[in-house]
Design a protein around this nucleic acid. Structure first.
Lengths: 111, 111
DNA sequence: TTAGATATTTCGAATATCGAAATATAAGTG
DNA sequence: CACTTATATTTCGATATTCGAAATATCTAA
């Protein structure tokens, strides 16, 4: 699909992850539970996709991570969204909406 | 992204292609122009993605193709959606909507 | 004749997905 | 105590698709 933001579709996961980090730092496991909860179970992230996505985000400088103790008293790696991540989140959100509106326009059209 | 229909995201292209074949048979080029038009330019399909997608759809028995003369007097391969394709279109449309609503729910949430 | 529109094919590089399994620790249950 | 469940992360390979680009071909219009 040849859209503005090259990986709009594949980037959806990253967008959702960034969004879930907006209000508080979370670890991978927490992100997974959070997204599942908010989406009413529609998203069941595969950890084999989620954790690599987190590494990518960090490598790209969109988030940073640190070790800390989770709410359950376990060691966990927490992720914090960085300014660059917030910016990309905004852009991807706008792109996503444009894209999904366009999809809907096609789905609703007569042909 | 671990959703019901395995390739919901990547399957968007196929869904849009099937949709554009619902009211009339079209050739690849025509599908491309049609989707671009209806989406107000949001979609600019890469032919390197579109034609392979068409082959896949045919191989899966969702569409069938035949050679004919285009409106512009050129030889072209027209694609016709088959019952199985209509069925999949319905399923993928439902899945897509569920998915995009869930994404929107996350994007609108406080966290 | 030169360019632009129409139409399809093919290529390789890059990347992400997926499911699955392995690892580890803490808490709770029988 | 043994066992299971919840928490949390890492890593793997197979598979599939995307993308950009370029090659081909024909017709029309300037």
């Amino acid at each position: 699909m040849g859209n503005k933001s090259n990986n709009l579709l594949l980037g959806a996961l990253e967008m959702l992850v960034l969004k879930s980090l907006l209000t508080e730092d979370r670890h991978g496991w927490g992100i997974s539970k959070r997204l599942k909860q908010i989406s009413s179970g529609a998203f069941t992230l595969n950890v084999g996709s989620l954790y690599p996505a987190l590494y990518r985000l960090e490598k790209k400088g969109l988030v940073e991570s640190y070790a800390a103790t989770s709410e359950k008293g376990r060691e966990a790696r927490f992720y914090k969204i960085l300014p660059k991540g917030k910016q990309q989140l905004e852009e991807h959100t706008a792109d996503w909406r444009e894209f999904s509106l366009a999809v809907e326009a096609v789905l609703l059209s007569d042909s």
